[in-house]
Amino acid sequence: MLLRTKPVLCNYYVTYRCNAKCSFCDIWEKPSPYITLQDVKQNLQDLKRLGVQVIDFTGGEPLLHRQIDEMLALAHNMGFITTLTTNAMLYPKLAERLKGKVDMLHFSLDSAHKEKHDAGRGVACYDFVMESVKVAKALGERPDILFTVFKHNLHELEEVYQQLILPKKLILILNPAFEYNTVDTGERLTEEELDYLTQFGKRKGVYLNDGFIQLRKDGGNHVGNPVCKAATTTIVISPENELVLPCYHLGTKSYPINGNLQQLYYSPEVEKLKKLEGRLPACEGCTINCYMQPSFAVNLNKYFWKALPSTLKYNYHKGTWKRLLA
């Protein structure tokens, strides 16, 4: 049973460019422009009319955009919940400009050890993460650590938790790695390892969407009975100012927005493609977290109930539930 038919989230790609070369991501390989502030202003107005509540300014590396603070301010002042995930290389320089504009600020960290983290990211950024935590805390911000979990770094969770999360009073977000296209994320986690993640997610200061775990145990999305509601819960906007459907990672079509996102979103051609969400051949077995999370939130099924406790826990801690009810 669907609890909501309006989109919840906008994944707004400010650029595909990145100053890192992560081994588990192919976005940085794409040539890309930067979104314009004028397009953002227009699209935010339409996103508000469409019922979107959360704007995730993403990339690439979103802090490469010189006007990212202005875009965050626009969205935040319009009542959207804003999120931003960064490799932290540029955060110390931009921290003052970003202060108070990001509701959910995530610093990516995938290892307790500098050499391993930097190797996976293809650039020396571990020290920037540590510095960014210090800078953000000094400014009164409440950053989170986003830890992408693979088989090869699962054993490092304890060390990160004990040496960084608890002493700094941060939240550790567990992000199980997902496969898409030809990106190599290594061997999949076993059921025993998934159970370990579930137990780890129950700790104080740790957030894990248990729906992600259940979906992996179930073999991912199945086209015959799709869990995914990517196209109806999430609006994806590209740096070229195009609407991408049914999702970024498996997107098959892009439509120029041309200052009229609301009308485009409900156009017959887009409506037809939205109905294929979770049903395309590439959707079989999909576990892409950024689309499954909003999908779980709108459909009253077992994934909804699995995801609910951790979602309530995180939003309560961040205080964002107040803005959702406003």
Rank of each mutant, 00 (worst) to 15 (best):
I288V: 15
L250C: 02
C283D: 04
V236A: 03
Y255Q: 05
A282S: 11
V244C: 10
H249A: 03
S254Q: 14
L250I: 07
I237S: 02
R279C: 03
E269C: 01
L280E: 11
G278S: 05
Y266A: 05
A230E: 02
S238N: 05
T232N: 10
I235Q: 09
A282I: 13
V227I: 15
T252G: 09
L245A: 08
E271I: 02
G224Q: 13
P239V: 13
A297D: 11
L273G: 00
S238Y: 05
C283S: 08
E269L: 08
P256D: 05
Y291E: 02
T233P: 07
H249G: 02
P281G: 06
Y266D: 06
A282M: 13
N241W: 14
L261Q: 12
S254C: 03
S254P: 01
L273Q: 11
A231F: 07
V236K: 05
N289I: 12
Y266E: 10
R279D: 00
Y255C: 11
G278W: 02
L243S: 10
T232D: 04
N289V: 12
G278N: 01
L280C: 05
Y255G: 03
A230C: 13
N258H: 15
N241S: 15
P256C: 11
S267H: 13
A230Y: 04
N258L: 15
P281E: 00
V236N: 10
L280V: 03
C247Y: 06
V298K: 12
C286R: 14
P294Y: 00
V298N: 05
E284M: 10
G285Y: 12
L250E: 05
Y291A: 04
L261S: 13
P246N: 02
A230S: 14
A231D: 07
Q263T: 15
F296I: 05
S295G: 07
P256A: 11
N260G: 13
C286A: 00
Y265R: 14
G251H: 03
N258P: 01
N225L: 11
P281M: 00
A230W: 08
A297P: 00
Y265A: 09
V236E: 10
K229A: 04
L273E: 13
E284S: 05
Y255E: 08
L280Y: 09
R279F: 04
K275A: 12
